[in-house]
């Protein structure tokens, strides 16, 4: 009887093992398919960036005789000769400044809302929650006019963009506030008992502990300007020298005639833009994941 039970359970065990092997194989296949789908656009963009022809005509995958397909670095060379380096520099400057200032502002805001209990705290948080429900697009028209009024639109779009990105960044405090909330308050209190001022508590105790969230904030603040399209387009207007990469590259694809002349150059530009961001992101991935998961869990 005893042996019977064991064999039965063993059989069941074996059956389960076989079942899980089959399901694992299926999952592996699915994952490979997913990876292909997710990678195709990136692979294509890299391949196309090394084409000599400018058009998007694409019946070359199966080596169609009617479409020429030649390899070459022409796009990258042309990229260097075009406005692109200027756009790249613009975006880089914006990203660096915004990364620094926005991080400082967000950390101030979130640390304060996490640690201090003052009368206006709750109303402030609720007010910002409500503010966040207004479509930001709405503010753009007026911000553009104001920037134009103080001479920070058009040719001077770069400082204007930096000003706007930084000024409203206090709204994005949620994720890092959630992080500060997880640092035990008893640490602060112990230091306060030892005679540290609030400022000393922040700089000597909390900030060293908050390294992951600081890196997360810097990373997201740095990545933001590379992708910002609408507002940058609005503010820079028709001045190509004030474009950022997103607006500039989009202008190459804006119309069909453009598509035929700049398509592969757009691909090359995309690759050049993506490389540093991807490298930075991959290096700091751990912190990003921490920030995103933490932020979502704490809402």
């Amino acid at each position: 009887m005893n042996t019977n039970e064991t064999t039965a359970s063993m059989k069941r065990h074996m059956g389960m093992k076989a079942a899980s092997r089959i399901s694992n194989t299926i999952i592996h296949i699915i994952l490979v398919l997913i990876s292909i789908v997710w990678l195709i656009p990136f692979i294509c963009i890299v391949i196309q960036s090394f084409r000599v022809e400018p058009t998007s005509m694409s019946r070359y995958l199966l080596n169609h005789p009617s479409i020429q397909f030649n390899w070459g670095f022409d796009n990258y060379v042309n990229l260097w000769k075009s406005d692109f380096p200027r756009w790249y520099l613009n975006t880089f400057i914006i990203a660096i400044v915004v990364a620094v200032v926005q991080t400082i502002i967000v950390l101030c805001m979130s640390y304060t809302l996490s640690r201090f209990r003052f009368k206006m705290r709750k109303p402030m948080m609720q007010f910002m929650l409500i503010l966040g429900m207004f479509p930001g697009m709405l503010a753009m028209i007026i911000l553009y006019q104001v920037l134009k009024d103080i001479g920070l639109a058009g040719t001077n779009a770069i400082p204007g963009l930096i000003l706007v990105y930084c000024a409203s960044s206090g709204m994005g405090y949620y994720v890092s506030k959630g992080f500060f909330d997880t640092i035990p308050k008893s640490l602060d209190e112990a230091a306060r008992v030892d005679g540290a001022t609030r400022a000393q508590v922040l700089f000597k105790i909390i900030l060293p502990l908050a390294k992951p969230i600081v890196i997360y904030t810097v990373l997201t603040a740095f990545m933001g300007p590379w992708g910002d399209f609408v507002f940058a387009k609005y503010v820079s207007g028709v001045t190509p020298s004030a474009y950022n990469v997103a607006v500039g590259l989009q202008s190459w694809l804006a119309t069909d005639t453009m598509t035929n002349n700049y398509y592969t150059m757009f691909c090359a530009g995309g690759v050049v833009v993506a490389i540093p961001v991807v490298i930075l992101f991959m290096c700091l991935q751990r912190y990003y994941v921490e920030g995103v998961t933490g932020g979502a869990v704490k809402g």
Partner: peptide
């Protein structure tokens, strides 16, 4: 999968 996050959205979307 994370590559998609790293690459600026406007590039992948336009492409």
């Amino acid at each position: 999968l994370i590559m998609t996050i790293a690459i600026p959205q406007f590039i992948s979307l336009l492409y």
